[in-house]
Design a protein around this nucleic acid. Structure first.
Lengths: 208, 208
DNA sequence: TAGATTGTTAATCGATTAACAATC
DNA sequence: TAGATTGTTAATCGATTAACAATC
């Protein structure tokens, strides 16, 4: 039950457990042991039990885990039991693609607004989400309660906007810009560096 | 110089070194010590030296590393010294966004073709890249030398297409579908699970 | 109850950091 | 040469796996 000192490795695995549990649910499976889950996920049963017990005893000896209960509990740990309100900075191709990830809505994520500096985009809607001028950012944030800002603009702009966002009270940034964002310690940043991901793949391919 | 037994952690860091070296280059800095790089990157100097020495001695005692040389060498390690030819499976929003990542071209990546099953898209061009029918996939692959396939279609389709790709000889998959792809051991897969990334961010935000 | 499987401690493994001799 | 910094070995730290007592 003690959530301090949870390693990054465990946090990375939680959403994957969540995904597999969702799959089990959709298959109508109501109960699973760490051993069975281990086979499906290709990780050790030991790791599954160890990981889960950082957050509490969700299973039952001799029985295993109730799929739906465990799914719900991991959802709570991940903060999916409440709506996370998002904004997007950048209405380019990537921003547009993310705006369309409507399935996020099912999982507790809701995209509220998009900001762009291109006057021809301002005032339009992208996948039914309104596009505002980047100049209105601070005003919007002071009037709306936003949890997460997504950045999909070039790196130079990204660093500046990140500063504006954190100054305006944003405490979580989903960063797609090709740079590391210098933010205060109390701000959570999750980087999605696509070109680095592709380079890793290139390395793996070359060394297979 | 010995490239066997390189841990995944190191492979993940290599593109980040590459990115910082590119930045140093663009700033006109010609030489850097592990200590200076360590400060910029917020990792230990020890880790930098340890990581690099898995691939060879790129530095010089008492001097440090030549930025351009190290940049080129890491590029070679990552396989960026040759052109990696890509195809995209799925001409949706995300596929379109990735097609536009033209800067990949600068780094040894070249998107050659897009495949979709929507007849209204087939025959068109997305960011100047031709869109073919998914039915033509095998024929295309037998006639063109492709290194990497990018998957941006729903998970059920993704698993089937991955099978077709690997059967057709593809040895590297950049996977954006919300599932793990069962592929032969000699196939490299790099997953970009966006919803899992977002869930991790939600967790971090909640536990800040 | 007997069997199964968890929760948890202990052992192992691997990755990171520290230290320093080698050397430019 | 003297100073600086690498390359590399050794020490530490943390994460994974194994083992098993607790218990449903």
């Amino acid at each position: 039950m003690n959530e301090i000192n949870i390693s990054k490795a465990i946090i990375r695995r939680l959403p994957r457990y969540y995904r597999y549990l969702e799959e089990l649910k959709s298959e109508g499976i109501e109960r699973i042991s760490s051993g069975e889950l281990s086979e499906r996920m290709k990780v050790t049963a030991s790791q599954i039990r160890q990981d889960l017990n950082h957050f509490g005893g969700f299973g039952q000896q001799g029985y295993g885990y109730k799929v739906n209960y465990l799914y719900e509990e991991i959802g709570k740990i991940l903060g999916l039991d409440r709506v996370n309100r998002l904004i997007l900075i950048g209405a380019g191709n990537l921003g547009t693609a993310l705006a369309n990830y409507t399935n996020y809505r099912n999982r507790g994520f809701m995209i509220e607004a998009i900001f762009d500096r291109d006057p021809s985009k301002v005032g339009t809607r992208v996948h039914d989400i309104p596009v505002y001028s980047i100049d209105e950012l601070e005003a919007y944030l002071s009037e709306n309660s936003i949890d997460i800002a997504t950045i999909t603009i070039p790196k130079e702009e990204a660093v500046k906007v990140a500063k504006r966002l954190t100054d305006a009270g944003i405490r979580a940034i989903w960063n797609f810009a090709h740079t590391d964002l210098p933010v205060p310690d109390d701000v959570a940043v999750e980087n999605v560096h696509l070109s680095e991901s592709l380079m890793s793949l290139s390395y793996k391919l070359k060394n297979m």
